[in-house]
Design a binder for these strands. Structure first.
Lengths: 349, 349
DNA sequence: AGCATGCTTGTTAACGTGAACAGCCCTACA
DNA sequence: TGTAGGGCTGTTCACGTTAACAAGCATGCT
C-alpha cells in the first residue's frame, strides 16, 4: 500500500531511517501532507480538531521542517548575512551581537563573513560567499573607504545596508562622527586650551576621516592653530607610539589631545605617564567609543559613546524593509554620539 | 520543443525571469543538466571540450548553484553553527573570528546564535534555532557550568564541540586555566609575597572555578594562608568594586592580587589608584587573558595570555572530524596559557 | 428543492539538484 | 570481425516542501 515498499528483510527493519517528513506526520494523523503544511504555516483554514491531531503527530515523531526543501520551493532562505572587518574590535562585535539578537527575534538566522583584508577583491569574495549561500540580504560593517566603494558594484538584486559606510548610494546607518569630534574639540577649547592635538585613526577609514574633519573644522572655525596630525591604527600600541612621537615633536605647547578611539587613548595615557606628564593637570585627553574599560582608565576617560547596539538594530530594520519588498532606498540614518565627561579633561594650568 | 513552453505573449517575453539553473546552462552548452552537474562537482568523467563549453555557458549566464536544492538532495547543508555567550567579550569574539575564517577555508559557512541568558532553556532554544537551520555541527562557546550541563542532553546525532566546557562527555577544547592560575600564584609567592588575594569571576563559570582552584591549591601547597575571595562578573566595574571591598576588609596585609581577568584588573587598578596604593610598589597584580590593552595599563599588566585563535581553530578541527563521519569522541584538547611578565608585579617593599 | 457560499481538505505539479543506471561510441584485443 | 571494456553522456527518479486548483460537505437563502 505504501508507495515506498519496505524492502522486507528483517535485518534492516530497525535501520536508522531518515528523519520524518510531512508525509510521515500526515500518515500518522490520518490527513494529507498538505494539511500538515497548513498547520505548520499557521494557515487559518484548518479545523481545531485536525490541527490538534497534526500537532500531536508532529511531536510524537519529533518532526522538524526541512529548511532546504522549503527554501527550494519558496525561493527564500530566511538567512541574512553580515560582512564585517574585525569582529574582535568592540564596535563591530557589539553591532554583530545586536543584529543577531534582533534577527532571531523575527526568525531570521545570521551567517557571518569576515574580511581578512581591506581591498576590493576581499570584499567581493565575502559577498560571493554569502550570496552563494542564498542569504536574503547583507549588512556590511565595512568602515573602510575602499571596501565601501566596492559595495557600489554589488549586484542590484540583493538587499544591502552599509554600516558606517560613508556617503555611498546604499542605505546606511552611521554614528555622527563629525558631530562627536566637533563636540570634543569645542569642549577642550572651552576649557581654555589654546588648541587641540589629534591622534587620528587609519586614513582609509571613514570614521577616522570624519573625526579628523570634525576636529579640524572646529579649530579653524574658532581661529585656532591646527597642529599636525599623528596617525595610528586603532590599536593601543599605535596610540602609545603616536603619543610618544607627539611628545618628541612638541614645538608648541599642546595641552589637549583628541584621540580617535579609546584603545589608542589608553596607549597615549601610558606614553604620557612614562613621560611624567599628568592627565588632566598637564594634558587633557578625550577618546571615542566609550568602551567598558574607559570609565576605569587612570584617570577615567572623557569620551564619546557610540550606541553600537542601536546602530545594529537600526541597520537590521533598514535591511528588512528591503528584504520584505521595498525598493533599495538611499536612506541614511544618523545617530548622534553621546558626550561622556569624566576626569581626563580639565583647564590648563 | 521546450518542455516548458513560453506563454507566447510578447509582453512578458522580457519578464524578469528567475535566476538560471542547470537546465539553462545545459541548453546553452548543448548538453544535459547532468553533465553540468558533473562539471560543477569536478567529476573527472567529462571531456575537456565539453567542460570548457559548460564553463563558458555558466559564466555567460552568471550561473550560481542553488544551495537549497543541493542540500535537499544531498542532505548536507555545509553550514556550521556557533553558539556563544557574549561575543562582545574579547575571548569569545576572537574565537568566533578564528572559527569563521577556518571554516570558510574549507567551504563551510558559519551561522551564529547568541545566548541571552545562562539557563538551560536558553541554550536549548539556541540549539534548536541552529538545528532547525540544518547545521551539520555546532561549536558551543558556553563557559557556564549550567549551559555546559545542558549540552549533555543534546541530541546524539548532531556533532558538537564544547569550548571551555568543563569535563562533560563532549569533545572539548580548553585552555589550562588551572595551570595558568597556579603559575600566577607561584610567581607572586616566589617574589616574596606572604600570600596572594584573589578577585574571582562569576562562580558559575567554569573558567572562574578553575582559576580559583589553581590559585587556592597553590597557596595550600605552599602552606600559605588563603584569603577570602571577592567575586566579580568579569566587567571592569565589578573589578573596581571588588578591589574597593578588598581594601576595606583588609585584615591582613595582602600585598599581591591575582585578578581573574584583565578587564577586572583595570577596574582594580583604578580602585588601587584612588586609594593611593602604588602598583607594583605596594601591591602586585596579575591578570588573565592578555587583552590588547593590557600591555598599556599603568603599569603594564603581568598576565596570562590565552591563544583564543588557536582554541577556535582547534575546536573547528574537532568538529569537522565528527562531521566527516568520525563518531563523537570524548577527546579533550588542552592548551596551556602563556605567562607574560610585565610591570605590575614586584617584590613587596 | 435548488443552488450559491464558505469552510475544510485533498490532488497534482513544480522547485533545482545529485544518484543510479542505461546507453552510446571508440579502441583494443582475440 | 566480433566483442569486451572504458570513456563519456543522457534519462529518470527522488529529495520535502509549497502553490494552485479541485472537491467535498454543510449551511442558508431564494
Amino acid at each position: 500500500m505504501a508507495k515506498r515498499p519496505d524492502n522486507g528483510t528483517p535485518t534492516n527493519a530497525r535501520a536508522p531511517r531518515r528523519s520524518p517528513g510531512m508525509v510521515d506526520v500526515a500518515r500518522l494523523a490520518g490527513v494529507s501532507h498538505m494539511t500538515v503544511s497548513r498547520v505548520i504555516n499557521d494557515q487559518p483554514t484548518v479545523s481545531q480538531v485536525t490541527r490538534q491531531r497534526v500537532l500531536a503527530a508532529m511531536s510524537e515523531l519529533g518532526y522538524r521542517p526541512n529548511v532546504a526543501a522549503r527554501a527550494l520551493v519558496t525561493g527564500r532562505s530566511r538567512t541574512l548575512g553580515v560582512i564585517s572587518v574585525d569582529t574582535t574590535l568592540y564596535g563591530p562585535a557589539s553591532m554583530l551581537l545586536a543584529i543577531e539578537r534582533a534577527a532571531r527575534e523575527v526568525d531570521y538566522s545570521v551567517s557571518i563573513a569576515s574580511l581578512p583584508g581591506l581591498d576590493r577583491r576581499t570584499l567581493r569574495d565575502a559577498f560571493d560567499a554569502l550570496t552563494s549561500q542564498a542569504v536574503e540580504g547583507i549588512i556590511a560593517i565595512t568602515p573602510h573607504v575602499a571596501a565601501t566603494a566596492a559595495l557600489r558594484h554589488v549586484p542590484k538584486d540583493v538587499p544591502v545596508v552599509a554600516v558606517e559606510g560613508g556617503k555611498g548610494p546604499l542605505p546606511t546607518v552611521a554614528v555622527d562622527q563629525y558631530l562627536g569630534a566637533s563636540e570634543a574639540t569645542r569642549h577642550l577649547l572651552s576649557l581654555g586650551h589654546r588648541t587641540v592635538g589629534h591622534i587620528a585613526g587609519p586614513s582609509d577609514w571613514y570614521e577616522a576621516q570624519e573625526r579628523e574633519r570634525g576636529w579640524r573644522e572646529m579649530l579653524v572655525a574658532e581661529g585656532r592653530e591646527v597642529p599636525e596630525v599623528v596617525r595610528g591604527d586603532w590599536s593601543p600600541r599605535s596610540g602609545y607610539a603616536a603619543a610618544k612621537q607627539l611628545l618628541e615633536e612638541r614645538t608648541r605647547n599642546v595641552t589637549a589631545l583628541f584621540v580617535a578611539n579609546d584603545q589608542m587613548a589608553i596607549g597615549a595615557l601610558r606614553a604620557l605617564g612614562e613621560a611624567g606628564i599628568s592627565v588632566p593637570r598637564q594634558m587633557s585627553l578625550v577618546g571615542f567609543d566609550d568602551i567598558p574599560e574607559a570609565e576605569f582608565f587612570s584617570p577615567p576617560l572623557t569620551t564619546l559613546r557610540q550606541e553600537f547596539g542601536e546602530v545594529g538594530r537600526r541597520s537590521l530594520e533598514l535591511l528588512l524593509e528591503q528584504v520584505e519588498g521595498a525598493p533599495r532606498t538611499r536612506r541614511r540614518l544618523v545617530i548622534p554620539p553621546q558626550f561622556v565627561i569624566r576626569d581626563s579633561t580639565a583647564s590648563p594650568e
